[in-house]
Design a protein around this nucleic acid. Structure first.
Lengths: 219, 219
DNA sequence: GGTACATTATTGTAGAACAATCAAGGCAGC
DNA sequence: GCTGCCTTGATTGTTCTACAATAATGTACC
């Protein structure tokens, strides 16, 4: 509700590394850091109130997730994608999102997480109507989280968030990459909800294709 | 040629973190560590002659690659997959390997890395004939590396090795998961070499399906 | 104005130190 | 003998200091 830094949970019960990791992820989602930006270890250590070790461990984690790029003896950078690499990311996202939707639909009948998906869908609509870009990003994250929970595939849960979509969203937040998408999400939602695996996969891949074409126009 | 620890390059010019990372990956491939094994930070630090910091950074990297599992306040473990999670990994491997083969085939015409793939294929046959399980693992890694180089997709290059196949291979090294595979690899090789994208994808996915059924028998 | 050199900023690495947590063994009580 | 608590040891989590190595920047000299 407030403009505050979204302290994930009740208190600072988080470990130091996790604090940095979550902090930077939130910073990216909310535009406080941008692709291409240089991240200096000591600055981050001071900013998050942790030791430099913890920062370095978090950077390894973030690099694995495709959020930052590490080059020896150089400051790490928030990953920045040119058009070519953006399309490469989308090629991977295509098959992975398709897999996600297919499995979510398959496991939907009787899934205990079904309500969460419906809530996430509503949140997506609310955020869309509010024209709040950041709220929409968060809602989208919740939506995918619900899909992943339903899909019941631990390897997919591990790897899907490692796809460079975070960066793509961050680089194109300001663009009009939002109109087309709500209907996309609804199509995915309904196919998954109905348990239509083939339709869900198709909707998911259509969505990625839509994102791709919008990006190609506006790049 | 020798049974030595495969010092990747000429000398110890590697950084400390990388030394631990590559060392543990080699240890896994060569069976010196096995899924389920506990890894103690201080031991590794002594073993590789580096500081504990470097070990912890390497563990973050390895966790991102799906090689170890980190649980707070507990020693990290080499990831171990039960049958269910093995199948989940294979579901992801299915679409990702298919994507890899399709793109490799698409970019094959005129690819400068074409010879490397042929060499890798030969190495695979040699290793198979020699009945050396470890040599076969290395050859298989070279084969996929060549495919990734040809496929020209940086996101795939980043994510594909993060799929938990390392662990699957490690857990089933001793089984007869080897007879069927050489012909699989040859099928992929020939489709890719000919530039037949559809056939390459099909061959790759058939291969994963074969691995799956062999594992399901012998589990 | 450009090249060589000095300076600064930053990362890479090791190590000490201590708190926090978990696992295991031992001891007491029933 | 069994159960449950408690002590103890092993290990991780974390910060700090220190210094070497490297890259980026600025400066003086020609």
């Amino acid at each position: 509700m407030t403009g505050e830094v979204e302290k994930q949970f009740s208190e600072g019960a988080l470990g130091a590394r996790r604090k940095v990791y979550l902090g930077l992820m939130a910073d990216l989602e909310q535009g406080r850091i941008v692709p291409g930006q240089r991240l200096v270890e000591t600055d981050l250590a001071i900013q998050f109130g942790v030791g430099r070790n913890a920062v370095r461990e978090a950077m390894q984690q973030l690099a694995g997730r495709g959020v930052v790029e590490l080059t020896p003896n150089r400051s790490s950078m928030v990953r920045k994608l040119d058009l070519a690499e953006t399309l490469e990311v989308l090629d991977v996202a295509d098959v992975m999102t398709g897999l996600l939707a297919r499995y979510a639909a398959r496991h939907m009948p009787g899934a205990v997480q079904a309500p969460e998906l419906a809530i996430a869908m509503t949140g997506l609509e609310d955020a869309h109507n509010s024209h709040d870009v950041i709220a929409f990003s968060r809602a989208r994250r919740h939506f995918y989280r619900a899909l992943l929970a339903i899909a019941q595939n631990r390897e997919l849960q591990r790897l899907f968030p490692a796809i460079g979509m975070h960066i793509i969203y961050s680089q194109h937040q300001t663009r009009k990459l939002r109109e087309v998408r709500l209907s996309d999400y609804r199509a995915i939602f309904e196919a998954v909800n109905a348990g239509y695996a083939e339709a869900a996969e198709a909707a998911a891949r259509d969505h990625v294709a839509n994102v791709r074409s919008i990006i190609m126009e506006s790049f």
